[in-house]
């Protein structure tokens, strides 16, 4: 059987690395500014160690006979393929905001996201699309004078 490592082990290491990195940056700071970060990062590193230890313990349980008793599900990127895909769509949308302009990027996003959500009814997509754009335009642009990024299109 493959040895399971609980995700807390990685998170603990990650927390330690982050605190080391941020701590190293306090060197450039004036005394008064460095004081608080140093304390907080030390605490964070300490918690990192605790989480790591917790992870090691949990891993042991998983690998022992008692595995079934554990309620917590082990995190793995394989299980969250769909959310990651959704996240990708969001990232592309945000990147396009400045290039295409707010309203065109938003329209594209809604189509893509709903298609991704397996909505195949064109009527539904179009209605949502129009509804959101009109609402945002009425409330934010007309009423509240928010200047959205304009980009190439609209």
């Amino acid at each position: 059987m493959k040895r399971i490592i609980h995700h807390d082990v990685y998170i603990g290491i990650f927390m330690l690395l982050i605190s080391l990195f941020l701590y190293s940056m306090t060197g450039d700071m004036p005394e008064g500014s460095a004081f608080f970060p140093k304390i907080i990062l030390t605490i964070f590193a300490f918690f990192g160690v605790l989480v790591f230890i917790q992870g090691v313990r949990k891993s042991k349980v998983y690998n022992s006979e008692n595995a079934k008793k554990m309620e917590e599900e082990i995190f793995s990127f394989l299980k969250i393929k769909t959310p990651m895909a959704a996240l990708l769509i969001v990232l592309v949308y945000v990147a396009l905001l400045k290039i295409l302009g707010f309203f065109s990027a938003t329209s594209l996003f809604i189509i893509a996201f709903m298609y991704f959500y397996q909505v195949r009814s064109i009527k539904k997509i179009i209605l949502t699309l129009i509804g959101v754009n009109v609402f945002v335009y009425l409330l934010f642009v007309l009423q509240l004078n928010v200047a959205f990024p304009k980009g190439l299109l609209f």
């Binding site: 945000v94 949502t128 945002v136």
Partner: peptide
């Protein structure tokens, strides 16, 4: 499927409108 995209768009609009800055998005 409908609520999801609406929440994302409103989150983007809301973050942007605070400081009129894309950085906040």
């Amino acid at each position: 499927a409908v609520l999801g995209p609406i929440i994302v768009v409103l989150s983007v609009v809301g973050s942007y409108a605070i400081n009129n800055n894309i950085f906040d998005v």
